[in-house]
């Protein structure tokens, strides 16, 4: 066999697999371009870095819900429980003398993961409505617990006095928010790379299959419960990291970090961008928050009205969210371009 033929033979399975649409973890040019946008914003929109950080952090939060809801199909109205738990973990560390950011993130992830793992057993049983109620209930429990434990959490006044050390001992968290933005962007990106790998893997495929038809999975030899427990735990850990980022970059934790509104808005952002696609989580969050910032500046009542209308339109007429519509438009355009 010649060298060329040998290489062709080795490359064959991969080319075939790609042609059939099996998930690969390869980066496309569009994706690279996508990630250059937030980098460019850092240099070009230095007046908006505070809003920018909020978007990046919420995008990470939405990403964590996307794994649970978009991929594994577990509906949740209480995902803020893990966000808040992460935020309080990192906040309390910073308040009580441990201001090192990265270890704070990791500890917040661990605490949120533990809470996610423990509650997952309640969540994975039952169907959509049961899950909706259980997650909602868990969210309310966490909120009330933080409210009552005011001597630890600061209650309704929030947790202030969070002091952060320099990132890597070098970058101070400045008032302009440069460090906060760069830090949030890098953490989001790392989490995104992880999530991207996860959803392209056999594990990710099995989650999609659970979403599509959970009753068929045991007939393939898979325990649905154990898959969902893992997915839910990972989702909780990522949400905890997002919460910790917010606490560290704003050096404050409000009770609203655990609130029902945060959970509910997150679902809206995800549905808006396109659940079950990682970029849907990021795009939905960015559009939602930019629109919110812009419209609520004009009139806060209007904002609620428009977002309500948009949600109804998306759910009724544009299933798959913005990315779903974009996909359909692309497909239609391709069909037209082909003779």
């Amino acid at each position: 066999m010649t060298g060329g033929a040998q290489i062709a033979e080795m490359a064959r399975p991969r080319i075939e697999a790609m042609a059939e649409g099996l998930s690969t973890a390869r980066w496309t040019l569009t994706e690279v371009a996508f990630w250059l946008v937030p980098v460019a914003c850092f240099f070009l929109l230095s007046d908006y870095l505070v809003l920018g950080s909020q978007i990046l952090i919420t995008a990470l939060f939405a990403l964590s819900l996307d794994l649970v809801l978009g991929y594994a199909g577990v509906v949740s109205l209480g995902h803020a429980a893990f966000f808040g738990l992460g935020a309080y973990t990192a906040g309390l560390l910073g308040r009580h003398g441990w201001g090192e950011p990265l270890s704070g993130l990791l500890l917040a992830a661990a605490v949120a993961a533990l809470a996610g793992w423990l509650t997952s057993f309640l969540v994975v049983r039952g169907r959509d409505l049961t899950r909706l109620m259980v997650t909602l209930g868990i969210g309310l429990l966490f909120f009330e617990a933080a409210n009552k434990a005011a001597f630890v959490t600061g209650g309704v006044d929030g947790l202030s006095g969070v002091t952060m050390w320099k990132l890597f001992g070098v970058f101070r968290f400045d008032l302009g928010g440069k460090t906060a933005y760069a830090y949030s962007l890098v953490v989001l990106f790392v989490a995104f790379v992880f999530a991207r790998r996860l959803v392209a893997s056999p594990f990710g495929l099995s989650l999609r299959a659970v979403r599509e038809n959970a009753t068929r999975m045991p007939a393939l030899g898979a325990s649905v419960r154990s898959r969902l427990v893992i997915a839910y735990t990972i989702g909780a850990a990522l949400a905890g990291i997002a919460g910790a980022l917010l606490a560290q970059t704003t050096q404050f934790v409000g009770l609203d970090s655990l609130g029902f509104q945060r959970s509910a808005e997150l679902v809206v952002m995800l549905v808006l961008g396109g659940a079950g696609r990682l970029y849907g989580a990021v795009i939905g969050t960015a559009l939602f928050m930019i629109a919110q910032d812009w419209l609520s500046g004009l009139n806060p009542v209007y904002w609620q009205f428009w977002i309500g209308l948009l949600l109804v339109v998306i759910v009724l007429f544009a299933r798959g969210g913005i990315l779903g519509v974009a996909d359909q438009a692309m497909a239609a355009w391709r069909r037209k371009a082909e003779p």
Binding site: R14, A17, M18, L22, S23, T24, A25, R197, L198, A200, S201, P202, F203, G204, L205, S206, A209, L220, G221, A222, R227, I230
Partner: peptide, 18 residues
């Protein structure tokens, strides 16, 4: 997926399906 489940590979999360 059915084959990967059989082989116990369906919890692999670091390699892509392809």
């Amino acid at each position: 997926l059915a084959i990967l489940e059989r082989e116990g590979l369906a919890t692999n999360w670091w390699k892509s399906v392809a």
